[in-house]
Design a protein around this nucleic acid. Structure first.
Lengths: 350, 350
DNA sequence: CTGAAAGCGCTTACAG
DNA sequence: CTGAAAGCGCTTACAG
């Protein structure tokens, strides 16, 4: 026996709600009611419909439904870079929340490219998503405006400058960096360095400010020779740490703006035969999955990405129901202590 | 001035192809032709239409188009676990290829759960995806059958047993493991261990077989005391390495079935004060992004996930056009040499 | 409790 | 080169 169809793209058999209706001897309206669990269908009738659906292996056509209802149950999720290990956990959490509500997620990434960002937003509008979560580090306001014009609710991540205009899952850095400082002080460190990110980036600036405030509240201050700037990647962390190590009285502990730079710092220490944590303590930020795989396992300030996802999702849900986007609680990172921090060695102290 | 709308969910203004047609003084058919770049529209007319589109900020409704055309330009992508660092690069590559063709990707993950797998497939069928890439380690044949019944082309990853029934991006492990062995032999190793994955997993079994064949082709054989089995995660790699280290004549080099276990092996070596690569060489498999972050940077057999994605995507494209799924070239991993391999130390050799 | 019919916003033969 | 009209597969007032 052959396959029964040789013509390409030819629909041999077409299953739709009408076929089901015929088989169950009812109208399409009734089939629709049964599918959607609407009340007011006699038990016996709905049984018959369900049987017909099962026998015919019928699956509703979501396009038709969406067209009719004006809602797609589709959310857009835009991230900057899926290869950045910051994002998978966020995507995971968001997708799981959506799936639990029967909502599908269209996923795109901008690769930090403003043009791609515009495209992403436009593609999502064309697909009639019900809402968009923009979980990128940078944002194009014009593109957001497009979504708003099209009536698509949006939520942003940590875009302080736009907090007035768009709902926004903000991160409150103060507690996390304070915890990191307290931990180091308790261990006996007083020479504490900081590896910052590019100060053109709002989030990098805010992390540095948070650490500065923490120092200040303990009567300490940031010292230029113990501060370095990196590119938020491994390589930049390594270079920054090299700089701090070459200082004539180098710090005994270093806090970094993210884990990738902490990993770079770790590599620089290894290369310079500075033992971590014996001769140098390091604290990262983010708590990427890699953090616990490093040797030594990295102490770090955990930014709870599942919470970010949950806030974003809840915010969008409410925007769809209630019109205006809801206010959202800022997310608070906390210190996770592992093995990259220890009391300072008894050596060259000032 | 107020916002102009206070009623929730009330469409103040509805933009569709008819509005554009009116504004440009043409029929909807002509607007459609212009949008889709169809020939046979006078320059002057299409200019007018384009202007109207721009002025009205019109965006076509993809649901309506899909319903009419019977194609959604939507692909499904199912992976097992986005938190597994194996996947981001694969997802990235797949999504980029799709975006270049104006195809959107709906993304779901099964979390290794057969029930969720069924759900994922069903959700994609309901969304009328044009094709599905099933990039999971395990697969439910019944669910695949559903897709086939619904006329949705599918491609699988490395499911050798189903290679006859479904198009399949296979991995040919032989070359990679042979390269790893040759590298270690050239360094002077002869006591070479292997950390395998659970032998219930087809891919784990095949990796072990590939290494065994490599040994055999060099007149060597696998020795039980130098072979351990782990769970494909960091923890399992650590336990397996502990076992190998406690052997009375432990191997001077170890090849593992994946990078996560190699990282575990590295941790075990650190804990036992065995220096890598000085006293122990380690080679992983996969080349995850973490591999190069480790200290020492991990030598590993790279499985090119961008190629897997490309093959899968091409296969689906062809299935949509040409009916039957196309044959696909197996993907070949290759050795990447970093710093976790070195000549064996001059000590207890047999 | 059930059905006939309109309409969601497109595309595409068909006619001119 | 352009338009009138049918139809994709649903849902939902409306009527009975």
């Amino acid at each position: 026996m052959g396959l029964g169809y040789t013509l390409v793209n030819q629909r041999v058999y077409h299953m739709d709600i009408l076929q089901v209706a015929k088989r169950a001897n009812v109208s399409t309206a009734t089939v629709s009611r049964v599918i959607n669990g609407l009340p007011g269908v006699r038990e016996k009738t709905s049984d018959r419909v369900r049987r017909a659906i099962a026998e015919l292996n019928y699956v509703p056509n979501t396009n038709a439904r969406s067209l009719r209802m004006g809602r797609t149950r589709l959310f857009g999720l835009i991230v900057s870079d899926i290869n950045n290990p910051f994002f998978p956990e966020l995507i995971d959490a968001f997708e799981s929340l959506a799936a639990a509500q029967g909502i599908e997620v269209i996923f795109t990434h901008t690769n930090y490219d403003p043009i791609r960002f515009h495209n992403c937003v436009r593609r999502m509008i064309e697909r009639n998503v019900d809402a968009i979560a923009v979980m990128t580090s940078e944002v194009e306001e014009e593109a957001l405006q497009q979504a708003t014009t099209a009536g698509v609710p949006i939520v942003l991540m940590n875009q302080r400058e736009l907090a007035g205009k768009y709902p926004n899952v903000l991160v409150d850095y103060s507690v996390g960096f304070r915890e990191a400082l307290v931990h180091l002080l308790a261990l006996g460190h007083s020479n504490i360095g900081f590896i910052a990110g590019p100060q053109t980036l709002d989030s990098a600036r805010r992390r540095k400010d948070a650490f500065k405030s923490a120092l200040k509240s303990h009567g300490l201050r940031m010292r230029a020779e113990w501060t370095a700037i990196g590119d938020m990647k491994v390589e930049g962390g390594r270079a920054a740490m090299d700089k701090l190590l070459s200082c004539n009285s180098s710090p005994t502990a270093v806090v970094t703006s993210n884990d990738l730079m902490a990993i770079g710092a770790l590599q620089a220490a290894h290369a310079a035969h500075v033992s971590v944590p014996k001769n140098l303590s390091i604290i990262g930020f983010d708590d990427l999955p890699v953090a616990s795989m490093m040797h030594p396992a990295l102490s770090t300030i955990r930014l709870p990405r599942n919470l970010v996802a949950a806030q974003a999702f809840a915010c969008l849900q409410q925007a769809i129901l209630g019109g205006e986007g809801a206010a959202v609680e800022p997310v608070q990172p906390h210190l996770v202590i592992r093995n990259s921090t220890a009391p300072p060695a008894n050596r060259k102290r000032r």
